[in-house]
């Protein structure tokens, strides 16, 4: 039994299917997430695959700040992701609302709606930082 469990933890750490969802931001973070998939950074060498389908997702990358409309969409998406899942907030907007925090339609960072596991600061964070953020959240799968 111990070996099966060990293997499961190992598989979960090695095989992360990701999806990114951009909320009310400037889109800069999703550009950098796309860039992280491509030859220079290549997320797939860590087994991270871009799925774009919540039902296949292990790690959700949230970029941008939450507004009154996309709050429901984000909640909906999270409900469709089967456990165990990892939620990474990418970029200053997803952390706190960033520069738009005072705008009338903005509620705040992603943690107003969901429990965020890893915060990746930066405006926008470099692809290296995104990769580092995802990989540092892997310890969640140890339990």
């Amino acid at each position: 039994m111990g070996m099966m469990k060990h293997l499961m933890v190992r598989s979960r750490r090695r095989s992360l299917w990701m999806m990114h969802f951009c909320l009310g931001g400037c889109n800069g973070c999703s550009i950098e997430i796309m860039a992280a998939l491509t030859p220079m950074y290549d997320l797939e060498r860590f087994g991270i695959l871009n799925t774009g389908n919540p039902k296949h997702t292990d790690v959700l990358l949230v970029g941008g700040s939450v507004n009154h409309r996309n709050r429901r969409t984000l909640k909906n998406l999270i409900d469709q992701i089967p456990a165990p899942r990892l939620i990474v907030a990418v970029g200053t907007c997803a952390l706190t609302g960033g520069i738009f925090n005072e705008a009338y339609n903005i509620i705040g960072g992603a943690n107003r709606v969901v429990d965020v596991d890893v915060y990746v600061p930066g405006c926008p964070p470099k692809p290296e930082a995104v990769i580092d953020g995802i990989l540092s959240g892997l310890d969640k799968f140890e339990q």
Binding site: L7, M8, S11, R14, P39, P82
Partner: peptide
Amino acid sequence: ARLQGRYGPPILQPFYDLYKLFGKDP
């Protein structure tokens, strides 16, 4: 991956994927 100029996942990657999927919430 190599044809696309990337390093690519390990050869055993599909097995990790499969085993992980079995461990997800049904």
